[in-house]
């Protein structure tokens, strides 16, 4: 058991911020997106969310019991991981998908690296990447919502992102695709927690107001994608706005890129992190084979985070520049 007794000089300010309270705030912020997912994709979405959360919490509990460690499921972080994982799964996926994903997220990515705060990549995103690469057929088939025109198999032919990619390539016009309002309220195909941008924005604003997440990461990430699309599409405002509202960009920017353990500490570092994420999202969406690159972008920047931290650490007061 670690005993951390940091001795610093006074004054000591007691903060009421605890891991538990922060994580509960994140859960509250995630709730609207989950409710929207259930509204748009039906009870199936609720089942996936439940299985994912239960698997994550149980995995952490069993691992800590087995290892004789202090049980930390009371800090709610496993619940957050479970929710985020579920939001990255299409509602049509079989229930073993969130189970496998939950075990990968908690056991492989979080606990084996030392538990909360020691993971070097976002657990939910890593699990999603493993699931996506392993079972692309299941993870990459997006259902239509209950309010859209039903197709024979309940799956959609093209996601908004695929439509936009064709617009970007000059093969289609914006008018053919999903409307801006449908994109905003979430009436479009996608994984279950990412479609309703309204709910995600509500949650994101809550996080920022409660001082849980720093606005710099999501704003710089989303801004970078928007600006890069504006510049490369000849200032096509509609296209750029739709790109921002499509796929997992908002969900990733507000809830996953802001993970404390895997994002930089300093203000400058956070901006670099956000811009880097946005740049990679843009490059993957616009020029690579995958339609969406949000998760890979954030994972990549997670890995770069220690490097960013190292070069952007602010100088201590009175620290003298070293002479070579």
């Amino acid at each position: 058991m670690q005993k951390q007794l940091a001795i610093t000089s006074c004054p000591h300010i007691r903060s009421r911020k605890t891991t538990q309270r922060i994580m509960q705030d994140v859960c509250i912020a995630l709730a609207p997106a989950g409710i929207a997912g259930i509204v748009f994709f039906g009870a199936r979405a609720a089942a996936i969310i439940a299985v994912s959360v239960i698997t994550c919490v149980l995995t952490e509990l069993v691992y800590e019991k087995m290892m004789g460690q202090r049980v930390t499921i009371g800090d709610w972080s496993a619940v957050v991981t479970g929710l985020l994982l579920a939001y990255n799964i299409p509602a049509t996926a079989p229930l073993w998908i969130p189970m496998v994903g939950g075990v990968i997220a908690i056991l492989l990515v979080k606990m084996l690296f030392g538990g909360i705060g020691s993971n070097f990549m976002n657990p939910a995103l890593t699990a999603r990447a493993v699931l996506f690469v392993s079972w692309g057929g299941i993870m990459g088939s997006y259902p239509v919502t209950r309010f859209m025109e039903q197709t024979a198999d309940g799956l959609s032919g093209a996601t908004p992102l695929a439509e936009l990619a064709r617009v970007f390539a000059g093969q289609a016009t914006l008018a053919e695709g999903t409307g801006l309002w449908d994109l905003f309220i979430g009436n479009c195909p996608g994984v279950l927690g990412e479609t309703c941008k309204l709910a995600i924005l509500l949650g994101g604003v809550w996080l920022i107001l409660r001082d849980v997440a720093d606005w710099k990461i999501p704003v710089s990430m989303i801004g970078t994608v928007f600006v890069l699309y504006l510049l490369t599409s000849g200032f096509n405002f509609g296209l750029s706005l739709r790109e921002v509202l499509s796929g997992g960009l908002l969900l990733g920017a507000f809830f996953m890129a802001t993970d404390y353990a895997t994002s930089p500490q300093s203000n400058l570092g956070r901006v670099i992190f956000g811009v880097g994420c946005g740049l990679i999202v843009f490059v993957i969406r616009a020029y690579a084979n995958y339609p969406e690159g949000c998760s890979f972008a954030i994972l990549f920047m997670n890995v770069v985070t220690p490097l960013i931290d190292r070069y952007t650490m602010p100088k201590c007061f009175g620290e003298v520049k070293q002479h070579g």
Partner: peptide
């Protein structure tokens, strides 16, 4: 349903680590 990532390099690293 086979877990395709196990046939790729990341799967090799994960298995080796475990």
């Amino acid at each position: 349903q086979p877990m395709a990532i196990m046939n790729m390099v990341p799967g090799g690293f994960i298995t080796l680590g475990v």
